[in-house]
Amino acid sequence: MNTTVAQLTARALLGGRRALLLLVMSAVLLALAVLLRLSVGVDHQVTADFLGAVALGALIPLFGLIVGTGVIGPEIDDGSVVYVLSKPISRPTIILSKLVVAVAATVLFAAVPTFVAGLIMSGTEAGLAVGFGAAALVASVAYSAVFVLLAVVTRHAVVYGLAYALIWEGLVGGYVPGARTLSIQQWSLSLAETIVERDLVSSDVRLAVAGVLLAVVIVGATWYAGQRLRVLSLAGEE
């Protein structure tokens, strides 16, 4: 991990008005949580459904997508990545530095608000806030790793990442139960299922399996992104 690369990445990702725009998304989640708390009161099932559908189902994947591709995608797009690549820093180190920034941003702007939304809606009861917070945390790491890899592999990373998040996890997962086994959302839900008391959350994957798959995906994606960055060729603007 190289702190200079990480600093530059953080500045490019969060500099200017961009941090504010990301903050708006987190604020929407918190505002909805407050709204539900005021209108419905404390209902743990509502908390679980809401956090499952909106936080883990939409906010975290979208954030992972925007931030994960955002740390390296624009640089590859406009070609300025060569100035980083030409420095005597190994490519895997560059990927790791960028991944650290992506994970930090996703955790800060998406996982922490998920935890806070859980606190707002259910307090510390039934382990809901902690469970969903932990699930959001591992999902943030996994989505960031996968989407950084995707940004190195293709210029249409956001679109393909979206196809995964919306079509695979949303549409196909909704109709084909088998597809749910291969979904970061379900893997992180299985962690929430274990931590949250009572049967408020259900996941299709057992925790042990999910843990192994998550570790494989995170480590594998990071490693492969480093390998792909070694042979990166800059394509011209289409």
Binding site: F50, A53, V54, P74
Partner: peptide, 27 residues
């Protein structure tokens, strides 16, 4: 910047749909 445009459009459509549908369901 193409990338920002893509991300922003997705956010507006997907996030608003997920948030509104689940709110509607709960209410």
């Amino acid at each position: 910047r193409r990338g920002f445009g893509v991300a922003a459009i997705i956010t507006v459509f997907a996030l608003s749909f997920a948030a509104i549908s689940s709110l509607q369901g709960i209410i």
